[in-house]
Write a protein that binds this DNA or RNA. Structure first.
Lengths: 202, 202
DNA sequence: AGGCTACCTGAATGCTCGTTCAGGGTGGCG
DNA sequence: CGCCACCCTGAACGAGCATTCAGGTAGCCT
């Protein structure tokens, strides 16, 4: 029976479907606006199943965060490995963050995560880890660029922090839909900032 | 009677006390964690009074946002008028934002506002207004500095956006209590960024 | 004085969820 | 076969909360 094969073979897949649905719902309802019923509807399951797999709503939210974190790692690594030199890599990071690449985008989710991190320890850990990963990628690219002579920052560590922060700040405007802020403009503003910050020769 | 004079003479003051209590509660519980009962306790009134004055919890939250907005304007104007030249003014903005000045500080509240703005139109309007005000102050200082020859940005408009964004991004780390991020370090990182961005002569 | 209005309170109300529960199907293993 | 463990569901439960309400007090106008 169709129903039989579905429930028997795919518990794993159902679980995964729930997590993805959770991410989707959080993305447009926010953490505090996400109800078990919303997830169930988005995933096409009963509410009971969500609690069965994750014990509680909080459990589901945290599991979704973990999934996000894992995928972020993978995507970032794979994506950056494809790029040849430091300049290309940095340029690619701008595009990734602007939301042109896969997975990484979606700054609304990041905003939600930040605020949740103010009050929830799991969220705090996740966002810290995510952030550390992103910033260390940036640092690596910078120091690689120093080695090749493409970059010449006054203070590499400070530059990394500033460029990461600049990205976050610009992203807020993108996420909030500020007039005049688009993905292209974000990438552009950030890239120009990087050129200055890293004293790239033209 | 004490009670009499209190309730009769001070409705205005009670109202104000409620709004300030609301801000306090939001600051440490977040918008989504703020209950009418919390505000009542913090303000030392009954829950009923809050609804009496503001119709609903949402009404109280919005009124508190408006209060915040008004005070932000006043404080910023007064504070900046006290500073002599563009360089001092800019430097002062760094300190203000780092939370050393009065009122403006408290980035947690800003984070909360951003996220609320994703879903609530009043919050959206408030934050847009706040942000516009802050950014235009920055633009003014920059163009003033260009006039006096203290600054020489390649693209003043882009510089203003970048410096405002940089501030937001650094502030996130401060608000989230990242290791190594303090008010002083924030002010310092930002100031260095401004020096570069605006090509200030040393 | 008497009544009218503005303030204010604490208890009652009722709705919105998260969570629990009783049960039902299904595949595998003795 | 028949039992067992795993998945899964929909209905029921109950806590937490915003909002409503009936009523109380104090100043103010006539």
């Amino acid at each position: 029976m169709a129903k039989g094969s579905l429930s028997a073979k795919a518990p794993e897949e159902r679980r995964d479907r729930i997590l993805r649905a959770t991410v989707d719902v959080v993305r447009d309802r926010g953490f505090s606006g996400t109800r078990v019923a919303d997830i169930a509807e988005a995933a096409g399951t009963s509410q009971g199943l969500i609690l069965y797999h994750f014990q509680s709503l909080a459990g589901a939210l945290n599991a979704a965060l973990t999934l996000l974190e894992d995928e972020f790692y993978e995507d970032l690594d794979r994506d950056l490995r494809e790029q040849a030199g430091p300049v290309e890599r940095l340029r690619h990071m701008a595009d990734l963050a602007a939301g042109m690449g896969p997975a990484v985008g979606d700054w609304r989710l990041w905003l939600e995560l930040w605020v949740r991190a103010l009050h929830d320890d799991d969220a705090r850990a996740t966002r810290e880890s995510l952030d550390r990963r992103w910033r260390s990628a940036l640092r690596e690219v910078i120091s690689e660029g120093q080695a090749t002579g493409d970059f010449d920052p006054m203070d590499p560590e400070a530059s990394a922090i500033r460029l990461a922060s600049l990205m976050d700040g610009l992203a807020i405007q993108l996420a909030l839909g500020d007039r005049g802020m688009t993905a292209e403009r974000l990438a552009d503003l950030w890239w120009q900032g990087a050129v200055t910050e890293l004293r790239m020769p033209l």
